[in-house]
Amino acid sequence: MKELICICCPQGCHLFVDEENDFAVTGNSCERGAEYGRTESMAPVRVLTSTVTCEGGAISRCPVKTKDAIPKGKIWEAEALVKQTSIKAPVQIGQVVIADIAGSGVDLIATKEIGALK
């Protein structure tokens, strides 16, 4: 039995997920909670946000995010790649910075437009 705090709403239900019984959820107040409990127990995912070095732009850090949530277990691997990455201005919002980051099938994209320094 696994215990989780539901993050769907401010209520913060204490969920109990029975891994041996097809991830059955108890302690939830609504269906969304049951869904969250199942996903979070079976294959938790997170969006990673960070910054990469940006050369030749008005600012030196470019904020980035994974376009979708990636498996939680790949966060550190993805962040290690982010740390080694440098891009050149100009940068567009949504521009792919690292494709298929850490084999997650999800792209890392820029979240800010950065103009090139003249």
Partner: peptide
Amino acid sequence: ELTGPEYAA
């Protein structure tokens, strides 16, 4: 779900 810079943009 947007990041701060995206929301501002």
